[in-house]
Design a protein around this nucleic acid. Structure first.
Lengths: 118, 118
DNA sequence: GTAAAAGTTAGAGTTAACTGTAAGTCAACT
DNA sequence: AGTTGACTTACAGTTAACTCTAACTTTTAC
């Protein structure tokens, strides 16, 4: 699949896809005979995982760290698991704080409600 | 209270506090006779609310919109409530998606677990 | 009363994460 | 076979949100 199709599939612009490759987040992207990138289903899985980490507010720099472990093969599995466990911990407390913010927001909305037709 | 004390209280650097004032997020900050800023408890409440919105991923530009309504006084209360209701809606679905990401993360951690001592 | 610390402004610099441009090559369609 | 559109690279520009610098004034501590 060419870069346009992969862009549509992943929701990342061709610019961003080339950028990710440049910073080392995507590696070993195959090329066809004329030098154009060709993406595979394996690439799709990996990008979807990157996006998951990104959407949970992990900076590209940290994702890059995970990517580099992944590149080193199976011997790094427990390191990767450790990274994900740390991330899980952070994500849990992040969600907790978001829930608290939601409660505070509800209270503020209620306050505005109580001010009506005074 | 001077800018340093207010900085410690809010967790925002003096640079950031001046920046927020410059972009119009903080208005009518009082000055003492020598031109130094003096912050009040009212300012503290407002900054804490700004931080709440910021921590729920609201861009400063949107917070600015809320700030501008707030500045126009009581007649804008229902507009402000509307903004907050919209934000609540977004925040709820945002939390929902974070929970889904957490589940996926758990699954990945489990996968790494299953790969151990093979 | 003087030195160090903290305040002021205007404006420049930084960082992360893209996003766009220019100059050129390749592919698809009539 | 020619034109239109998609691809390539290297590198420059953008955006949000700060963060720092320089030059200067004021406050605080000894």
């Amino acid at each position: 699949m060419n870069i346009k199709a992969f862009s549509v599939l992943t929701g990342l612009s061709p610019y961003t896809l080339r950028y990710y490759e440049r910073i080392g987040l995507l590696k070993n992207i195959q090329r066809n005979t004329s030098g154009h990138r060709t993406y595979t289903n394996k690439d799709t899985d990996w990008v979807k995982f990157i996006l998951r980490l990104k959407e949970t507010a992990m900076p590209l720099e940290n994702i890059l760290e995970y990517a580099s472990l992944r590149e080193q093969g199976d011997v790094t599995q427990s390191d990767r698991q450790y990274l994900l466990k740390e991330h899980r911990k952070n994500l849990k407390s992040y969600i907790q704080s978001q829930l608290e913010h939601l409660t505070a927001l509800e209270r503020k909305i209620e306050f505005y409600e109580s001010q009506k037709v005074s």
